[in-house]
């Protein structure tokens, strides 16, 4: 893959929380500058660890993470924050600031660009505020700007979570099981929003998920992980029962 069309390039990524126990065992993978990739795999296989290493919420033990034309694995301080603000993240439990309004939660996506005294006074550029209202409309929460986040349902919260991440104008969107706490219908809506916003704003999206059917339905590419390694990487069609057996192990769970 050439550099221009690659958003993220992970090289030999290793993570050990406990010395000698490799949770990520030398992950090497590229992600294109567009499209939605789903990462699937059994619980505890390191999917969250992989995503969280990319935006450095977790410190990688070894390896490189090429993003935005540089290796961001060794960055610290300001340089790290500047890399982070170009990577949006959506969380399983939404992680909204509960006591702030929906609008403030969206604007918090701009904090990487806002000096502290302006953030304190809530003086965000008009451009950011306009964009926040437009995004709220897009995720279907146009009339919720002044609601406090803790007054929203799970599905509404996740819409705010996505809008907050897109507010960053990120060059990459990470989502760690964004639908695992939601009902099936809402899950489909949330995946739809992520795919559509990703397309519209030209943001590549990487989603960790457990629901294989949902992954097949929305992803352009599936990455299967097992034991801290990548064991499948290809189109959704390629996910045969055999492949699923390699990813998840066993076969008794495969119906018919």
């Amino acid at each position: 893959m050439n550099a221009a069309s690659t958003a993220l390039s992970v090289r030999g990524l290793v993570k050990e929380y406990v010395r000698g126990k490799k949770v990520l065992d030398g992950i090497t993978i590229d992600f294109a500058a567009s499209g939605l990739s789903a990462v699937i795999g059994p619980s505890g296989t390191g999917k969250s660890t992989l995503l969280r290493c990319v935006n450095r919420l977790v410190e990688p033990t070894a390896g490189q993470i090429h993003f935005g034309g540089r290796d961001i694995a060794p960055l610290k301080g300001r340089a790290l924050r500047e890399a982070r603000r170009e990577i949006g993240m959506v969380f399983q439990e939404y992680n909204l600031v509960e006591r702030l309004s929906v609008m403030e939660n969206l604007l918090s996506g701009r904090l990487g660009y806002t000096p502290a005294f302006k953030a304190w006074l809530r003086r965000f550029p008009q451009e950011d505020i306009d964009r926040a209202f437009a995004l709220l409309d897009q995720v279907g929460l146009g009339s919720f700007a002044n609601q406090r986040a803790d007054a929203l349902s799970g599905g509404q919260r996740q819409r705010v979570g996505i809008a907050r991440a897109v507010m960053q104008r990120p060059k990459l969107l990470l989502a760690d099981e964004p639908t695992s706490s939601l009902d099936p219908k809402t899950s489909v809506e949330i995946m739809g929003i992520m795919r559509d916003l990703g397309r519209e704003h030209g943001i590549p999206v990487i989603v960790n998920m457990h629901d294989v059917e949902l992954a097949k339905r929305f992803a352009d590419r599936i990455v299967g992980m097992s034991g801290g390694r990548i064991v499948y990487d290809g189109p959704p069609d390629g996910l045969t029962d055999d492949v699923l057996k390699t990813i998840y192990g066993g076969e008794s769970w495969l119906a018919g």
Partner: peptide
């Protein structure tokens, strides 16, 4: 979790 989400936006320590 709320703190982590804000940190993930690239916000400075003060923010």
């Amino acid at each position: 979790k709320q703190v982590e989400a804000v940190r993930a936006t690239g916000a400075s320590f003060m923010n």
